[in-house]
Design a protein around this nucleic acid. Structure first.
Lengths: 213, 213
DNA sequence: CCTACCGATCGGTAGG
DNA sequence: CCTACCGATCGGTAGG
């Protein structure tokens, strides 16, 4: 019981990072004082500044952290499923799940897009673009063999599906207000409908997928 | 030339409102000082506080203003077009245009959704829901007569299209980073693809629309 | 519409 | 990891 009040010996850095991530996502960078983060993890402001030399440095590490998670999860997401329609649907579901798993990620992405567009742009180009290219190449191949609609704009399509995945998690209150249901039920409906829309908008009805994909 | 420096006699209130709208959208409420708004319209902070008794009151009026624009434009948007496929597409295009016309609206909507979810939820319920019901009713009718896919979730569908319209305008940098084009070109592509996706996801291919709609 | 000013809060430093 | 403290900025008021 003596160790219940100060249980953190060396993972303090990690605890600060997690608390900062949550608060930056929930309230935004400017609205979050490093003092409130320090208090939440049970230390004083100058002690926090020993671990992260400035608030800006803390922000950079929070964002770097989220990008690392993306880089860890992406390969698994993109290679997990079987192939053809199924592969596509489970990929989309995995992307949604990435944000659903931890809504803070969605909110943090939205805030970064609003407040530091250039920084996010650069990070996306470096970390996400190669994987996007993999998907757009697949769509173009699908168009050639006739399983994907010919008039799909592959890049624009992928962007819309990605933004929709983030939006449905970050903006649940909007969906609740319109659909008039609870957050949980609303999210389940939004997810199912997004997967359906993405499928219907991409694949030609009734088209068969060849064996090797 | 003598009147070029102080051209504002009585529309000062409106000028403050417009400047506040732009800055709240661009940088967020918390990041915008009323001092910077006052400076931008050429007066001092206490003078601004004569027109709007507090920063919070200013925020309320900014949001009220945007909702009024919505209420003005909505009826026109929903009744403008011809009917069936065409009517639907031009309605979606009009919604996109509403935000494209003034990207600040999209950014302001996103920030309000993030920072004051309950306030936005209430405003949407009061102002938007009746119109949403009109569209979902139309979809359900379309499903009955077989021109809309039977497995569409009308509410979830409308929410996704609305969020996508806002997102493509508010998050252009993301689209630029992924598509690798300029903002203008990227927006044109995103708009065209969203309209296509919305159509393909809703209507049964090759179905005919009856005369009276 | 102004000058002058207030108390609170912020990020960050000194020094231990 | 702490106490003590700094200069800057904030929203808002007094008083004219």
């Amino acid at each position: 019981m003596a160790s219940s009040k100060k249980p953190a010996p060396e993972d303090m850095r990690q605890r600060i990072l997690e608390e900062a991530t949550r608060r930056f996502g929930d309230h935004g960078y400017g609205e979050t004082s490093i003092d409130s983060i320090a208090e939440a993890v049970g230390i004083r402001k100058p002690s926090l500044l020993y671990h992260f030399s400035s608030k800006e440095k803390l922000r950079e590490e929070v964002m770097h952290n989220m990008m690392e998670r993306w880089k860890e999860d992406l390969p698994r997401l993109l290679t997990a499923a079987t192939g053809g329609h199924d592969r596509f649907e489970s990929t989309i579901m995995a992307v949604i799940e990435f944000y659903l798993d931890d809504p803070t990620r969605a909110r943090l992405s939205v805030r970064e897009a609003m407040d530091r567009p250039d920084a996010l742009k650069k990070a996306l180009k470096e970390n996400l673009q190669p994987w996007i290219a993999l998907i757009t190449d697949y769509i173009r191949w699908g168009q050639k063999i006739g399983i994907c609609h010919a008039d799909v704009d592959p890049e624009a399509y992928v962007i819309h599906v990605l933004l929709a995945s983030i939006s449905m998690v970050a903006f649940t209150p909007v969906a609740e207000a319109i659909a008039g249901t609870t957050a949980k039920k609303s999210l389940a409906r939004q997810k199912k409908e997004l997967v359906r829309m993405a499928r219907e908008a991409l694949f030609v009805d009734g088209a068969e997928i060849p064996d090797g994909a």
